[in-house]
């Protein structure tokens, strides 16, 4: 068994596509219309085009909002992405206007930071020792 895909609920898929590709730097993999206005929209890392896909799923279900709002209030991230250098990525993203709820924090061998994806979620970026 392997993890082929994971998902985050997003308020707006067009906004999510823009943020996850142009700001975070992922690459769009699948974009298929589903139903009236939804899309099967996935992105992958440019370093791993055949790696795990991230599904940007519409947060239409009323429970999704309640769940995400409660997590965001307490600063809890819904997903974690690995980066080479958290500090450098923090500077780069801050320059693009990204809001961080946790600045880079060194905790033993791991450094993390938490950002707002502008689509209703907090995302953690982390440098994990190789």
């Amino acid at each position: 068994m392997k993890i082929h895909m994971t998902s985050v609920f997003v308020d707006d898929q067009a906004q999510a596509e823009q943020f996850y590709t142009e700001v975070l730097g992922f690459v769009k993999k699948h974009d298929v219309p589903v139903g009236e206005s939804d899309r099967w929209l996935t992105v992958v890392s440019p370093d791993e085009p055949d790696g795990t896909e991230l599904l940007l799923e519409p947060a239409a279900h009323p429970a999704a909002r309640t769940y995400r709002d409660a997590l965001v209030k307490d600063g809890i991230p819904l997903a974690q992405f690995a980066v080479q250098d958290v500090q450098a990525e923090y500077q780069r993203l801050r320059g693009l206007g990204v809001r961080f709820t946790q600045d880079p924090l060194e905790m033993g061998p791991v450094t993390t930071a938490v950002l707002d994806d502008t689509c209703g979620n907090l995302i953690q970026i982390a440098t994990v020792p190789q």
């Binding site: 307490d74 600063g75 809890i76 946790q102 905790m107 033993g108």
Partner: peptide, 14 residues
């Protein structure tokens, strides 16, 4: 100026 998540992370990790 820390979120609950950051405080919890610091207590457990540090």
């Amino acid at each position: 100026g820390q979120t609950l998540f950051e405080i919890c992370s610091r207590l457990s990790m540090r």
